[in-house]
């Protein structure tokens, strides 16, 4: 294992995949705040939501390598190509709307990837009709406890912040070697061609400093996202991960100890050959979920099912109440401040 300086506390995220609707508000909110009209950032989406099963972005990221092996040895994987990240599209608006070309010009992409986009395989999924299946997987940098990117960085630009465990990069020190991106097994690091630096989710640290939650959580209309200190017993994140054990890390076998957790997806009962519902079978093949969340996924799903059952029988369920999120502020952990209150003293 790397000798990363461990943080005192760790900020963590939970995404409830039974509430996530793939709306991309988190991605769009993140884009609007950090990567809109920024030089070299057209293709960057620090937050992405993809349909699983699916290749996602960068296309086929799960088999690109990186992370640690069981012995704690760092592996450099493959650097995703811009084509694999996809997107970065701009369009020929002027041509179509003011170009005098009539039907001979239609709105089309004039830059970026020709074959892929950040959400190209949206809602395609897997299985076979009528038992097709899919679910949404929001992904951001996992602000890993054993961050492969930090160890891989040759210029010392990357660090794990002591106060909250965010994995950040000093962009002034970054030399653009992209070793971090090769080492990150989640492939959540982008390259800014124009500025010659790598970039990734900054955990909305300027907001955290003001007691305001990150946009991906604070703007999630699905009320599927939670943020908070992992060790804060008053945070929903702590309870979901540590107490109720219904939220699991993604690809634990990458051995970077990620700090984004997921409540695994339930799915409707599949149909038998004769079209009748088979309530005892699983529509999503269990191995698909195991591949993503490890074998612990079965236990987490079991908790979800039995707690759901309690509610259906008119009993109380703390787990369900937590996920219902009666009061939205409870998903924000200690970061409950309304940003609109802030008045900046700007020169």
């Amino acid at each position: 294992m790397p000798d990363n300086k461990k943080s005192k506390r760790q900020l963590a995220w939970v995404y409830d995949l039974n509430k996530c609707i793939g709306c991309q508000t988190c991605s769009v909110a993140c884009k609007m705040l950090w990567n809109n009209e920024e030089e070299g950032a057209d293709h960057q989406w620090w937050m992405t939501v993809n349909t699983k099963p699916g290749a996602g972005t960068p296309r086929g990221w799960e088999s690109m390598g990186g992370g640690y092996d069981a012995k704690g040895k760092l592996h450099f994987g493959r650097l995703p190509t811009p084509e694999e990240f996809g997107g970065g599209w701009d369009f020929n608006y002027d041509d179509v709307l003011r170009g005098g070309k009539g039907r001979s010009a239609h709105l089309k992409k004039i830059s970026g990837s020709k074959t892929w986009g950040m959400n190209w395989d949206e809602d395609e999924g897997g299985g076979e009709f009528p038992n097709a299946y899919f679910f949404y997987l929001p992904r951001m940098c996992n602000h890993c406890t054993d961050a492969a990117c930090v160890e891989a960085c040759p210029s010392g630009a990357m660090f794990k912040r002591e106060s909250d465990g965010l994995v950040l990069r000093d962009e002034d020190a970054c030399t653009g070697s992209q070793q971090c991106a090769s080492a990150c097994p989640y492939k959540k690091i982008y390259f800014n061609e124009a500025r010659g630096v790598s970039q990734h989710c900054i955990g909305c640290f300027p907001r955290l400093e003001q007691g305001v939650a990150p946009v991906c959580v604070r703007q999630c209309p699905g009320r599927a996202a939670f943020v908070g200190f992992l060790d804060d017993e008053n945070s929903a994140v702590h309870r979901l991960v540590a107490k109720h054990r219904v939220a699991l890390p993604l690809h634990p076998e990458f051995n970077t100890t990620p700090n984004v957790f997921y409540v695994p997806p339930l799915a409707p009962a599949p149909l038998r050959e004769d079209g009748s519902w088979d309530e005892n079978a699983s529509r999503i093949p269990p191995n698909i979920l195991e591949d993503l969340f490890g074998t612990e996924v079965h236990g987490a799903l079991e908790v979800l099912r039995s707690e759901l059952d309690k509610k259906r029988r008119g009993k109380e369920s703390k787990v369900m109440d937590e996920l219902i999120l009666y009061q939205w502020k409870d998903c924000l952990g200690h970061l409950t401040r309304d940003p609109a209150e802030i008045v900046w003293k700007r020169s």
Partner: peptide, 30 residues
């Protein structure tokens, strides 16, 4: 999108959700 959560939450509250559609829609997944 702005209100969907009430459906997910109704399910967590013990309600059952059934989708009826020709295709397996995004709403069917939940």
């Amino acid at each position: 999108i702005h209100w969907y959560h009430y459906l997910a939450e109704s399910r967590y509250n013990g309600g059952e959700i059934v989708t009826i559609a020709p295709d397996y829609s995004a709403s069917a997944t939940h």
